[in-house]
Design a protein around this nucleic acid. Structure first.
Length: 425
RNA sequence: GGAGAGGUGGCCGAGUGGUUUAAGGCAACAGUCUUGAAAACUGUCGUACCGGGAACGGUACCGUGAGUUCGAAUCUCACCCUCUCCGCCA
């Protein structure tokens, strides 16, 4: 959520930012609601002041004065109830609009409408030449290490069983990513896989409603998390951190659950888009002047991971129109996936495997994550999140890039100490 | 899941309807004293929002939400959480 004062004082800039980010919100309309809200606040507070004055007078009132004061108090109460109801209604409309306004945008973020206009920053390694590459689904079936059919029987579409060496490979990936992040000063933390709906929405996810990507629990205000970002952001909610505590770096592990409603076709093939996966996530609470540097640090850690996995990738600077609501700036890493089908039905293309976002104070304002500065004043802390490693997509890249003509798969050297084997066969 | 107890400021803790602008203490910060430190003394010491150029004034917040009342930290209800005991259980 943005600061309403900032919106009031920079109406044009905020409106333009919404256009740039392909978000249709009328700031003029928001500010109109805001004005009505301010007027009502003043009215309600004035009535409350009167009420308090009368209550104060009652303390020392004589028996003759009391009935008159009580009458006055009663009528005030009725009027106040009406005004408070109006205010509550306006507050709700106000909040709905506030929630639609996206974060401001980093001045260096590339301008564009769709993901086509994301800017490639750099590439690592050339894609390997593989004769008749198989997809991870085909590989998984042949080696009997990945089973979608039985999962469909047990839970449904877009779930999977990992078997044998692939089950071990997943555990190896998790520990590998944790170790790499810990090496960079990140504190390991395993989070709950569920969170309260208010934490979901505070972090910028919609837990309920038609277009929700979140599984919610019936009869409880709880949902399955879509990413560890949610419980990690919540870890310091409603707290005031001190400036010298920051930055606080976490590397979290959790399962992630997504309904993926309406997502079908090529971009959903196999493990690429599933209802449940495991993810090691970087999350940092930072002072405002630290967040840009931390953002770069996160990207560097992510790149190192993929370099050690020896997977070709490219780094993409996400354009304005493709940034989500909370992100001020976002870098994705797209790994080469030899079996991934392209637009013209050929095989081999890049697929998103990580995403690092600087959310500045957009999440912390809703979640009440403050920082006490040296001078004693409070500001909102900045939050950043980045994928260290999502196991499902990492396994796609490893299976497809590691395939050899004889049908076996080479495990990246960096993982062998964790797996205990060098090939999948 | 059942029974009981409880949730008050950074921390401890008083407070069962209006003398509470949330007592008192601890911690923290500033000052006095001191060669320095400690002690002692004095002072400061929550957050958010509204109005105002500012000084300042106002409103809300005692787990959360609703209610009773002229008036609620205090009474009622629901929920959340913590502790003790019981049950179940990896």
């Amino acid at each position: 959520m943005l600061d309403i004062k900032y919106i009031r004082e920079h109406e044009e800039e905020v409106q333009k930012n919404c256009y740039d980010r392909s978000v249709r919100v009328e700031i003029k309309d928001l500010l109109q609601v805001d004005q009505g809200r301010l007027a009502l606040i003043q009215e309600v507070e004035g009535l409350r002041q009167e009420r308090n004055t009368i209550a104060e007078q009652m303390k020392s009132a004589s028996d003759e004065q009391r009935p008159g004061l009580i009458e006055k108090g009663k009528s005030l109460k009725e009027l106040l109830a009406v005004k408070e109801a109006q205010l509550a209604e306006v507050e709700q409309r106000w909040m709905e609009r506030m929630m639609q306004v996206p974060n401001l945008t980093h001045p260096d973020a590339p301008f564009g409408q769709t993901d086509e206009e994301n800017k490639e920053i750099r590439k690592y390694l050339d894609p390997p030449v593989i004769d008749q590459p198989k997809s991870h689904v085909e590989i998984g079936k042949e080696l009997e290490i990945l089973d979608f059919e039985r999962a469909a029987e047990v839970v449904g579409n877009k779930f999977y069983y990992l078997k044998g060496k692939l089950a071990i490979l997943e555990q190896a990936l998790i520990r590998f990513a944790l170790d790499e992040a810990m090496e960079q000063g990140y504190q390991p933390i395993t989070t709950p896989d569920l969170a309260r709906d208010e934490v979901m929405s505070g972090t910028g996810f919609m837990p309920r409603g038609n277009e929700s990507q979140i599984y919610s629990i019936e009869n409880q205000q709880l949902s399955l998390i879509a990413t560890a970002e949610i419980p990690l952001a919540g870890y310091h909610m409603n707290q005031t951190l001190t400036e010298d505590q920051l930055p606080i770096r976490y590397v979290g592990f959790s399962h992630c659950y997504r309904t993926e409603a309406g997502a079908y076709g090529r971009e959903s093939y196999g493990l690429y888009r599933v209802h449940q996966f495991s993810k090691v996530e970087l999350f940092v609470f930072a002072a405002p002047n630290q967040s840009d540097a931390i953002h770069e640090e996160m990207l560097r850690i992510e790149e190192q991971l993929w370099q050690k996995l020896e997977i070709p990738y490219r780094v993409v600077d996400i354009c304005t129109g493709d940034l989500g609501g909370p992100a001020y700036r976002k870098y994705d890493i797209e790994a080469w996936m030899p079996g991934k089908v392209t637009d013209n039905d050929a095989r081999g293309s890049y697929g998103e495997v990580t995403s690092a976002s600087n959310c500045t104070d957009f999440q912390s304002r809703r979640l009440g994550i403050r920082m006490k500065q040296k001078d004693g004043t409070n500001v909102y802390a900045h939050t950043l999140n980045g994928t260290a490693l999502a196991t499902s997509r990492a396994m796609i890249a490893i299976l497809e890039n590691g395939q050899r003509p004889d049908g076996t798969i080479v495990v990246p050297k960096a993982l062998v100490p964790y797996t205990g084997f060098a090939t999948l066969n």
